[in-house]
């Protein structure tokens, strides 16, 4: 399999036009987008976003994501605490959904992106097709990771019955949102073409 780079060409990532390699760093003659044979510092950027995502993920799990006030008594819930409470009250399905959306998926994203970066950085890992598949899944699933934030937002909007009962978002909600955003940026910053380049090395 020959890459565009090997053919001395650069494909515009915006419109797909092929330009000669000489215009690397210049502008696409068709759409005016910047032309890059490979995104510079793609791995570093992705790794940095990933680190930020991880950093945000810590308080998102330690801080309460939701404050429930019932008859004047406030109760704070962390993400895992909420899962536990749901499971404790018998809502296994809900607990499973929340756990998947808020814990399993973000953790999986961290792991997958980390694994891809590690593989690219040290020339190890899966063969290029599997890498590409993993990358696509991560990008796809990223937008669904905000499930927990959505739940909190909806509950906070719905349950406002004055002093009887009210739900307010906790500080972890913001942190969790940031964490998701950072991981998405991380996945986006990773130039998928590098996945194939790495495959070439091993191939």
């Amino acid at each position: 399999m020959t890459t565009a780079r090997e053919a001395g060409l650069i494909a515009c990532l915006s419109c797909g036009a092929l330009e000669p390699m000489a215009s690397d760093g210049g502008l696409c003659s068709r759409c005016g987008g910047r032309l890059r044979s490979r995104r510079p510092y793609s791995l570093q950027r992705s790794a940095a976003w990933l680190a930020l995502g991880l950093m945000a993920y810590v308080p998102a799990n330690l801080w309460p994501i939701m404050r429930t006030t019932t008859l004047g008594r406030g109760e704070d819930n962390t993400i895992l605490g909420g899962v536990w409470v749901l499971a404790h009250h018998g809502s296994w399905d809900l607990a499973a959904v929340v756990f998947l959306a808020s814990v399993a998926v973000p953790m999986a994203k961290f792991c997958v992106v980390g694994l891809l970066l590690w593989g690219l950085a040290f020339g190890r890992g899966f063969e290029p097709h599997k890498r590409h598949r993993l990358h696509e899944i991560v990008e796809y699933i990223g937008r669904w990771s905000m499930l927990d934030v959505f739940v909190v937002a909806i509950l906070a909007a719905l349950v406002q019955v004055g002093p009887l009962a009210s739900i307010t978002p906790g500080p972890a909600a913001g942190a969790f949102g940031l964490s998701v955003a950072f991981t998405m940026l991380s996945a986006q910053a990773l130039d998928p073409r590098l996945l194939w380049d790495a495959g070439k090395d091993h191939a």
């Binding site: 001395g8 000669p20 390699m21 000489a22 790794a47 690219l120 950085a121 020339g123 070439k200 090395d201």
Partner: peptide, 19 residues
């Protein structure tokens, strides 16, 4: 990290590069 990319460059060497 990005060293991998340059390391692959010799194989994808473009004669029309600025070099």
């Amino acid at each position: 990290m990005t060293e991998r990319t340059p390391s692959s460059e010799p194989s994808a060497r473009n004669p029309s590069s600025s070099d």
